[in-house]
Simulated scan of single mutants.
Amino acid sequence: MSKSFDMELFLAGVLTGSHATRQRHIRQAKIIQTEIAKRWQRETPWAWQRKHVAWFLDHRLGERSQATRYYYVLTVRLLTRRLATSWVFNR
């Protein structure tokens, strides 16, 4: 039995701001993680490729409001910073 991935611990080094903001980023990162895991069976952010995150932003958030997409892009930028990658998402 494997231990589940702790998104809060993963993002701890890059999270800043108020408690509510940190909780929102953690909640959204867990949603991103769940959707990518369902679609591609990639359980941790270390296994993700740029196409996985781009798919989430394009297909899972396509019908959402502009404000919702904006907040998810902020969370994706935190994930990108934590992964130390140079992925750029202009949404």
Rank of each mutant, 00 (worst) to 15 (best):
Q33D: 01
V14E: 02
R24Q: 12
P45D: 01
R22L: 03
F89D: 02
R24C: 07
T85L: 06
W48E: 00
H25M: 05
D58W: 03
R39F: 01
W55I: 07
L83H: 03
T68N: 05
R69A: 07
A12N: 11
T68L: 09
N90E: 12
L61C: 07
Q41D: 13
H19N: 12
I32Y: 09
V88T: 13
W40A: 15
L78R: 09
Y72K: 11
M7H: 01
V73N: 05
T75Q: 10
L74K: 15
K30I: 05
L83S: 07
W48V: 02
K38I: 04
K3R: 13
V76E: 08
R77G: 10
F89W: 03
V76C: 14
T34G: 08
T85A: 07
E43H: 06
A54E: 15
Q33N: 05
R27S: 13
Q28C: 11
R82S: 05
W87M: 08
A37H: 10
A29I: 02
V88N: 10
L9N: 07
I31C: 09
N90S: 06
R50P: 00
A12M: 09
Y72L: 06
K30M: 13
I32N: 01
H59T: 08
K38Q: 09
W48N: 00
R60L: 09
E43R: 05
T80G: 08
R50T: 00
A67M: 02
T44V: 06
A20H: 15
L57F: 08
T80P: 00
W48S: 01
A67E: 09
V14P: 01
R22M: 12
L11G: 02
T44Q: 07
E35Q: 11
M7C: 03
A29Y: 02
G17A: 06
R82Y: 04
F89M: 12
F10N: 01
E35H: 08
P45L: 04
R64L: 13
Q23Y: 07
F89S: 02
R77I: 02
F56M: 10
K38P: 01
I26K: 11
L15A: 06
A20Q: 15
I36W: 05
R27D: 14
Q66A: 14
T34K: 08
K51H: 11
A84P: 02
T16G: 12
V88R: 14
T80N: 12
A37N: 12
G17V: 11
L78V: 03
A12V: 01
R60P: 04
Q41S: 07
Q41L: 10
T21P: 02
I26P: 00
Y70V: 07
E8F: 00
T16K: 13
L74C: 14
K51Y: 11
H25L: 04
A29N: 07
W40R: 11
Q49T: 03
K38E: 10
A54K: 11
Q33L: 10
T34C: 07
H19T: 14
T68A: 05
L61S: 11
H52K: 00
A47N: 03
V53N: 02
G17N: 08
Q23H: 08
T85M: 08
A84E: 15
A20D: 15
A54M: 08
W46E: 13
T34E: 14
Q41R: 11
E35W: 06
S86D: 14
A54D: 12
R69G: 04
